[in-house]
Nucleic acid binder design. Structure first.
Lengths: 209, 209
DNA sequence: GATCACATCACACGTTGGTATGAGGTGTGG
DNA sequence: CCACACCTCATACCAACGTGTGATGTGATC
C-alpha cells in the first residue's frame, strides 16, 4: 500500500489576494498543517493530488466563478473535499447559502486566527470520516462489480429476505442453480454470513441514492 | 387511528413583537398554513400539541433566552421540530451558528414574504421526512422492548452473523435454547426473514447513536 | 400458594441452506 | 477452433435452521 490512510491531509487555499494567501499559508503551517496555495479556481483544478485527504479554504470573492458557485461546482466535479469559506464582504444570505450547500464554516474577514484553525481542523475531521466511509463503500462496489448478472440478481433477492425456493420460482430456475449463484455471490463479496451480505446490499443501495 | 399522518402541519411562531407576529400569522394563513403564535419561549413550551407535525419560526432576539440558545435547548427537550430563524440585527457568525445547529433557514429582517414561505415549506417537508423515519424507528424500538433479555442477547449475536452453534457456545447454552430465543425474537420483532431482522438491528443501532 | 413470564434442555422431525460431482448449453475473444 | 466465463440442472449428502412435545426450574406478582 503506497498511500493508504497514513497520508497527510492537505489544506488547499484558494484566494486571489497574494498577501492573504501567504498569511493563511504560514498560519496553517505554524500549527503543523500542510498547505498549498492557488490564486484562482482554475489553478486549483489544474493541480493534482486533489483526491488525497484534506480540505479547501475558499475565498468567496474570486475572479470569474464566485467561491459560492465554485463550491457547488465541486460536487459536480466529484471533488468532495470539505469547504471552509471566507469573505471580506459577505452577508447573511450568502453565509446561509454556503452552509446549506454543505460548507463546514463561513468566516467573515477579518477572522481570528484560532477560528480559522478550528474551522480547518473540523473540515479535516469531516473529511477523515467521509473518507473512511467512502473507502468501505468503494470496496463493496468493486466486489459487487465482479458478480455476474445472475449473481447480482440472486443477491438482490436473497438480501430482500426471499428463500431459495421463491427465488428459483421468480427467476424460472431450479433451486440448485440459485444456490450456486448465491454461494458465488457470498464468496465474491467476501461475506462470511448472510447478515454481512445484507449490510453490503444496503450499503450499495445508499451509494445509488 | 385518530390522528395518524393526516394531521395538518402547524407553524409555531415565536416572536415578542406583536405586530411582526400577527403579520407573519396572516401571511402564513394566506397561503393555507395553520399557524399559532407565542410571545415568548415560555409561552411556547406551555402549549400542547408540540408533538404534532409542523415547524417553528423563531425570532433571534427574545426576552430571556435568545432564539439561538433556545434552538439548541429544543434538542435537549426532545422537540425535533425544524426551526426557521429570523432576526433584525443578525450577523454572519450568528447565522452560521444557527445553520450548524441544524436550522432550516436564517432570514434577516426585512425579508421577502416569498422567502419566508419557502423556508417554512422546506421546514415542513423536512419534518415530514423526519417523522416518517422516526415512526418506523419507534415501532422497531417498541417491539424490541418486548424482548426478554436473553432474546435481545441472542438477536444481537444472530444479526452479527453468528451461527446458532456459536451463539450457544458463547452464552453457555444448548443449541435448542438458542433456537427458541431466536424464533421468539423473530416473532416479537415481526421479522419475516433474517434479512429483515438484520435491518431492524441496524436501525436500532442508528437510534442509539 | 397459584399464576405467569422467563429460561433451560432432550428428543424428534421436517425444511432450508451449502457444497460437491458430473454434465450439458451459450457466447466471446484470442 | 479452443479456451473461458457464464448459465443451467440432476443427484446426493451434510450442516444449519425451525418447530413441536414435554419437562424442569426460577423469580415476581397477586
Amino acid at each position: 500500500m503506497p498511500q493508504a490512510s497514513g497520508e497527510t491531509p492537505v489544506v488547499h487555499i484558494v484566494d486571489d489576494d497574494d498577501s492573504q494567501r501567504f498569511g493563511l499559508d504560514s498560519l496553517l503551517r505554524s500549527v503543523g498543517l500542510a498547505a498549498r496555495t492557488y490564486g484562482s479556481t482554475q489553478e486549483f483544478l489544474k493541480a493534482d493530488r486533489l483526491d488525497g485527504p484534506g480540505c479547501i479554504v475558499l475565498d468567496v470573492r474570486l475572479p470569474g466563478t464566485s467561491g459560492l458557485d465554485f463550491q457547488e461546482e465541486l460536487a459536480t466535479l466529484g471533488i468532495r473535499l470539505p469547504v471552509v469559506l471566507m469573505t471580506g464582504h459577505g452577508d447573511i444570505p450568502m453565509s446561509v447559502r454556503a452552509m446549506k450547500a454543505g460548507a463546514v464554516d463561513f468566516l467573515p474577514k477579518p477572522f481570528r486566527e484560532q477560528d480559522m484553525i478550528d474551522a480547518v481542523t473540523a473540515a479535516i475531521n469531516r473529511d477523515r470520516l467521509q473518507r473512511a466511509n467512502e473507502n468501505q463503500a468503494i470496496a463493496i462496489v468493486d466486489r459487487h462489480a465482479t458478480l455476474s448478472p445472475r449473481e447480482r440478481e440472486v443477491m438482490a433477492l436473497v438480501t430482500a429476505g426471499k428463500m431459495n425456493k421463491q427465488i428459483a420460482a421468480e427467476l424460472g430456475l431450479s433451486e440448485v442453480t440459485v444456490k450456486i449463484h448465491r454461494g458465488a455471490a457470498m464468496r465474491k463479496m467476501g461475506a462470511r454470513s448472510l447478515a454481512d451480505l445484507v449490510r453490503m446490499a444496503d450499503a450499495l443501495k445508499d451509494r445509488a441514492r
